[in-house]
Design a binder for these strands. Structure first.
Lengths: 106, 106
DNA sequence: AATTTGTGAAACCGAAAGGTTGCACATATA
DNA sequence: TATATGTGCAACCTTTCGGTTTCACAAATT
């Protein structure tokens, strides 16, 4: 099944995983200690995150360190871009209103 | 069921709805014409978007215009903020590397 | 007043999500 | 070599998701 990044970040556990490995790479076991679910459940989330390239693996002996692929998050930023333009222009309009009110006060 | 904004934007149809009403408010019927699903399915999506306050209704006779609550999208932006800091600092590091290489070239 | 139009809600359905348990297998360690 | 440890994968289960169909009802139109 094809998963996209929006679906990936929809799950709160996955967002928490992202937050954790943003600080430093971690193994599935180490990650699982932070949640009230099984190690396998975390593994599944990591699989999904890997599938849409939000996460990279680095094998070290028998341990696998998962690392955040921060660049991928820029895709969300890019999607937001079109709306940021809108809310900033709305802000500009508010600015105009405010400055007009100031002038009138004078 | 409590829905959050991340779940709301996870569905591609809902993202398309958001994109449409970002341009101008629309009725469910008008929206549905843009998709290959029933009007009721769109209505369900609108319900979800309304629940997490991404969308506002404005009744006009028997028609209901749905309007994007653009402010709500800032929540995503806010979530991204912490990671933006990271990827920008990584970019800075890349900058340093590049300038070091330049110096060495000299 | 009768009919058409725009809408939301409920019941139902198949597929997907997220969890668990059990297993296989490679790598450390005794 | 035997055992412990770290991991992924598959089977299974329950809940949720996204869709459809059917209905109710208010507002517009005839």
């Amino acid at each position: 099944m094809r998963r996209d990044i929006f679906q990936a970040i929809a799950d709160p556990t996955r967002r928490a995983i992202i937050a954790l490995i943003a600080v430093q790479s971690m193994t599935p076991n180490a990650l699982a200690e932070n949640f009230h679910t099984s190690r396998q459940a975390i593994s599944k989330h990591l699989r999904i995150l890997t599938e849409c390239e939000l996460v990279k693996q680095e094998q070290q002996g028998r341990e696998i360190y998962y690392q955040l692929e921060i660049k991928k998050l820029k895709e969300i930023d890019k999607w937001l871009e079109q709306y940021r333009r809108i809310w900033e222009s709305q802000f500009d309009q508010l600015d105009k209103v405010l400055s007009t009110m100031k002038k009138q006060k004078k």
